[in-house]
Nucleic acid binder design. Structure first.
Lengths: 246, 246
DNA sequence: GCTTGAGTCGGACGCGACGTCGGGGTCTGG
DNA sequence: CCAGACCCCGACGTCGCGTCCGACTCAAGC
């Protein structure tokens, strides 16, 4: 029996046979004068035992000990079952995440818990501002955790027409328009900040990072508006330091 | 922000960061004068998007294209879901096999379908003969397939006290004992061979291999007995060529 | 300034179970 | 005797990092 026949009988590839020989899992059979391996039926039996155990998930490295000692099989089966069930659990969670993302139409780089209420991108928003909002969501969702994130982004919200005016500001916007946007934002941000103060998880590093994201992504006018907002918030209460959503 | 802080914020290791840089998945940040990477919050955002998609099972190699093109995500999610469910199916079958093996007390190198009726090893059987029976089971179960195997090994059986006498034969066994064993085996093997003739799947290669296993594992007396059995079977009917179970 | 200790760097190898490629030899039917 | 199928072995590739190494850098204390 040549290697390809043995492989076919056992349902493996010839390369697998060679691998098993290499790692000492199967004994080398006698060779023909030309160096071909000549297998006997005993090799098939050993190979079948190997493939069956391997198909149960036994690592090839521990397989020899199990082949010789049938009593060691019990704990082995326990362990294999545990590993398989753990893996199934992981994959099941993954599938649930995928399903949640699809149901909510959420982009896949957002946490799936947020799929239920994920805000659709506003029509007419400049693309780089849409990107900023997206990045803000990604960052906040991770830093705040699902609970804090939901209570912050899921409840009170700055309405789209206000944020649209905010993003539309440019270097040539008239001063009174800028001031008007600050007022409009303030009206919506103030209650958000109040609720935010009640959340214990909100550590300073998180707010610092969110602020830095604004610094990097927003234009100079938007940054000025946010700073004015902070001043107004600080003066209305003595609650310092956190930038509002934009 | 140094690498360890970024890694901690994203929930990965520093080594993972370096790996992502190496494969071009993350852009290299500017370096300090000493060569240290200085990250900004934007890097954290990108990293978070990467880790989330990776946790959904997206291969790192296809990840860049998905990051840039959000519309490609749909088919991707389909594919990921299919892969996950296929993997779950495999692992579930594996767990079912493990459970079947444990319920039946079947050794793990036998097919789990046989767990219900797997014969317990006979007390007093020489160990090498027990090994032979085991190997015979392994080989036959694989070559014949579950259905043919069950109808062959699961129904009619040579009773243990007969096979015990067969295995106990040695070079110094008296001739009349040998002849008596042949008679006893014949009585049980004849109906088995009759049923076996009805099975279509039984190809000649399979019976050839099973015969070769007997040749290799059994002692000279046992082999002689089997050959006498074959002759007697061939003379009783004109059905040639297959060795009986032993 | 000098040291110390924690952090960082890049390169290289390891893992697990083989797939794939390449260059060369061997067998078998016609 | 030759073509074509089969076999050999060695070596590198896969995937997502873990681990180790020797050399360097940085902030803090003395």
């Amino acid at each position: 029996m040549l290697s390809s026949e043995l492989a076919a009988l056992a349902g493996v590839t010839v390369r697998t046979l060679r691998h098993y020989h290499q790692i000492g899992l199967l004994p080398e059979p006698p060779r023909s004068s030309g160096g071909y391996r000549r297998y006997e039926v005993g090799h098939l039996v050993r190979l079948l035992r190997v493939t069956r155990l391997a198909s149960l998930g036994v690592p090839l490295s521990v397989l020899p000990s199990v082949l010789d000692d049938p009593t060691a099989a019990e704990e082995l089966l326990d362990e294999l079952d545990d590993r398989a069930s753990a893996e199934i659990e992981r994959l099941t969670r993954r599938r649930a995440d995928i399903a949640a993302l699809r149901r909510g139409g959420t982009p896949p780089d957002l946490p799936p818990e947020l799929s239920a209420w994920h805000p659709a991108p506003e029509a007419g928003t400049p693309t780089d501002m849409a990107r900023h909002e997206h990045e803000q969501l990604v960052l906040a969702a991770h830093l705040l955790g699902p609970a804090a994130f939901r209570s912050l982004f899921g409840g009170l919200t700055v309405p789209p027409h206000v944020t649209a005016r905010f993003y539309a500001l440019g270097p040539d916007s008239p001063d009174d328009e800028v001031a008007s946007v600050v007022d409009a934002l303030l009206a919506h941000v103030e209650p958000i900040m109040a609720e935010l103060a009640n959340l214990p998880q909100l550590d300073s590093r998180a707010s610092e990072l969110l602020e830095q994201l604004n610094e990097q992504n927003l234009g100079p006018v938007q940054r000025r508006v946010l700073r004015q907002l902070q001043l107004r918030l600080a003066s209305s209460e003595s609650d310092p330091g956190h930038s509002g959503r934009a």
